[in-house]
Design a protein around this nucleic acid. Structure first.
Lengths: 338, 338
DNA sequence: TTGTAAGCGTTATCAT
DNA sequence: ATGATAACGCTTACAA
């Protein structure tokens, strides 16, 4: 265990701890030769700053926290990875907590972080977290917070979200542009803002194109492969020739059904997913999807947090553009020859 | 900002800070009524323990660190997720650092963690980290460490690895059992122990089955889709009827080639990948692969670290079994009817 | 069962 | 440019 302190360095050099502290922390009022000597001795003795003593005395931390529902979802791990790189660069270590999609764990994660006196927190809330009162309360206590992806609108602090409305709108417009005329929708639970916004985008596109909205071909809670398969069957039965899906897995389930029935994709049926999961480019036919740019979200959120901690802003709401990735499953214009 | 201390609680209650400290930390020599009163007042005042003061005074931390090459790889994020759940349960927060596959960042991550006086560290080293001397040095300074997945053999402390040899052996044996007789291999860089072990497992299976080892059909550094495609062409040209691959992406590349050439899978050609990436079950034909059980690795490593910090062991080397997942790409016995 | 008092390692405020 | 000193908030002998 390292137990070398600035006092040891001071004694070895015949100076005082204050000078050692100043030398090590880059205080300008230190003779260059002293600084050199201190640095050399510190290295020689294997000195390591005790961040706890430092934090206690100075009241400042070089740690921030990130709370996500689960680390092992690609979307979140990409966000964390990007954010970590930026925060690390700025001299902050990152404590990561998982809420496991439930409010209780989210509250305890928040407690862990505030007890550690982190300088700020990035949080994407659990679906189980309904009111967000614990988050609001922490914000009101003065904790710098950036909400990302899943946010409680109207809270203080900053936020970074995707433009879900535009993503869905663009995807639906793309289907319309490829000549599909009866386009169904797979949505997530519409109680969640994100899914609601996507549904609104879908509707807006239909409206703008003069197509009727038929709720018979809107399937809520279609987010897994199995429901996708089952609802694709209904969609086909109800005369759809395309599907906009709020998720890639349900779109995959739809592909399963369509391939099984021998329905040609994209000639007879078009489909676009959402999230641009890794598998979308690997399956056949490759699935068109909407890229959510998690790396961009992570970077923007980290920078927003740094600004917040620096008092350069009291809060800002940032939007990250989505990007439609057109692949075989919906690109009738190019793949029809196949 | 919270600034309520145990002194505030003590004053409000007309007792001393020591008693408050004892009450809050579960010291048994505290009257039940006192404990209740302290807890109530703490809640009322919005008290939060200052972990820095606590750590400084007690010399103990409730924080551990995890260093991985990249958080955003599914394999590592699954390990972290599993480890975090267990460590969190045990009362530890987790600081996560990325080495970005280079030694410099790994060293700086190690420094960040030791400066934070973490109680222990889980580490999977960067490919760019050749000697591991910084890791060894930290271990020798008394830092509790568990290496996982990519380990420097012979180091003190604990380790958790996959049985890569057995995984490759089983995969190759499975191909042999399905009647394939000229089985090529895609390996990773053989300078890395893990890949070497897999190659040895492949060779052992051939030997045991009395099949010749032909280095013409062993392709080193086949780890991405593109090299898989190119080397599959060579393998076919050289008469292979099956491939054991040390990675899933190169196996995917091989599938690309085989499908393009109209070679029937698994009737005319069998293939098994490694890692059981999410896409393996989603593509067609579904790819057989070797599951590395990251969740198991994460759990085992976390528990090993807890034992190490508890001085229940001075080091142990644990092995996590891999699991062969048989899918269409290699299962001639069941899919041949197709 | 509770109080007293010292100290963990650092930094900030004086003073020199 | 450096030294002396106090203090950050907590835990822990030791005493009572």
């Amino acid at each position: 265990m390292t137990n070398v302190t600035i006092i040891d360095i001071a004694e070895a050099l015949g100076i005082t701890p204050s000078t050692v502290s100043r030398a090590l922390s880059g205080n300008p009022y230190v003779k260059e030769s002293t600084r050199e000597a201190v640095r050399a001795k510190a290295r020689e003795l294997g000195y390591e700053r005790n961040v706890h003593a430092s934090n206690l005395r100075s009241g400042k931390t070089h740690t921030v926290g990130i709370i996500v529902p689960r680390i092992d979802r690609q979307f979140f791990s990409s966000i964390i990875s990007a954010a970590e790189s930026i925060l690390d660069e700025a001299g902050f270590s990152v404590i990561i907590c998982q809420s496991h999609e439930n409010e209780e764990d989210e509250i305890s994660a928040l407690k862990t972080l505030t007890e550690s006196r982190v300088g700020g927190i990035m949080v994407s809330h659990a679906t189980g977290s309904r009111s967000g009162s614990h988050i609001l309360e922490a914000m009101n206590r003065g904790i710098k917070m950036v909400q990302f992806d899943r946010v409680f609108p109207g809270f203080p602090g900053s936020s970074v979200t995707n433009d879900d409305f535009a993503g869905a709108y663009n995807a639906t417009m793309h289907l319309i542009g490829n000549g599909y005329t009866r386009i169904g929708a797979f949505t997530g639970p519409l109680g969640t803002n994100m899914f609601l916004n996507r549904y609104e985008g879908y509707k807006a596109a239909l409206t703008e194109a003069g197509l009727p909205l038929d709720e018979d071909i809107v399937f809520e809670n279609s987010i897994v492969r199995e429901t996708g398969y089952a609802n694709a069957a209904k969609a086909v039965e109800r005369g759809c020739d395309a599907l906009y899906s709020s998720g890639d897995y349900s779109a995959l389930g739809a592909l399963d059904f369509l391939k099984e029935k021998g329905i040609r994709i994209p000639q007879d049926f078009g489909i676009v997913g959402t999230a641009n999961e890794a598998f979308t480019s690997l399956i056949s036919p490759a699935l068109s999807s909407t890229e959510q740019n998690p790396v961009e979200i992570g970077k923007k959120a980290a920078l927003a947090l740094l600004r917040l901690m620096n008092n350069e802003t009291s809060g800002e709401n940032l939007v990250v553009d989505t990007e439609l990735i057109i692949r075989e499953s919906s690109d009738r214009k190019h793949f029809a020859k196949k």
